[in-house]
């Protein structure tokens, strides 16, 4: 089968078949055979009768459509009901929480000095220097795991963590290993 045969057979039944293909088909035995077999098949195809939709097809569609819309509306009502607790939260409580949060951020922003090059006040082993004589508590070891965030986020994190734990994460960093603050912390722990 050459290229013309291929093109003719692929375009068989097309109203806009090029004339060269029609001319080719009149002389090509392979294409004549294809056309003959195709004609027989085309005559037989209508024997496979179609299925017509049931008389109430459109009604069923519209009923399901209405049901879906009703369900969607119900869902919307339910969601509105679920989120109606918003109005139950007293405005002053929300406002106070926002103010406290902003204050904590500002306090940290202006009073938290930059971290020393080695990170938090650390000894040679890389641990937080609570006291040279005491082992580093597990909680502060966790702070050592490269979790040093920008100070603004430290402030936010501290604000969120303080109510959750008895251990007060130092808001004022240790200046050096012998500082009073670190000694006080060591005594507390």
């Amino acid at each position: 089968m050459n290229e013309l045969c291929q093109r003719y057979q692929e375009s068989f039944g097309d109203q806009e078949m090029p004339q060269e293909l029609a001319l080719h088909a009149s002389t090509c035995e392979s294409c004549k055979e294809f056309a003959y077999r195709q004609e027989i098949m085309q005559q037989a195809l209508p024997s496979w009768k179609s299925a017509t939709p049931s008389p109430d097809f459109a009604l069923s569609v519209m009923a399901r459509l209405a049901e879906n819309q009703h369900r969607r509306k119900s869902l919307r009502d339910l969601l509105a009901e679920l989120f109606s607790f918003r109005v139950a939260i007293p405005l002053p409580v929300g406002a106070l929480a926002c103010i406290l949060f902003i204050i904590s951020l500002l306090v940290n922003l202006f009073f938290w000095t930059d971290n020393p090059p080695g990170g938090m006040n650390t000894n040679q082993a890389g641990h937080v220097a609570v006291s040279p004589d005491m082992p580093t508590p597990p909680t502060l070891q966790a702070v050592n795991q490269n979790t040093y965030l920008p100070r603004i986020w430290n402030g936010a994190g501290a604000f969120l963590l303080i109510p959750m734990t008895d251990l007060h994460i130092p808001i004022v960093p240790l200046e050096n290993e012998q500082s009073d603050v670190s000694n006080e912390k060591a005594e507390k722990i």
């Binding site: 179609s50 299925a51 017509t52 939709p53 459109a58 519209m62 209405a66």
Partner: peptide
């Protein structure tokens, strides 16, 4: 929405 019923009626045979 009623216009959709007309669309369904017009095209249901072909689609089914």
């Amino acid at each position: 929405t009623r216009s959709f019923a007309l669309i369904v009626t017009a095209l249901q045979d072909k689609i089914v």
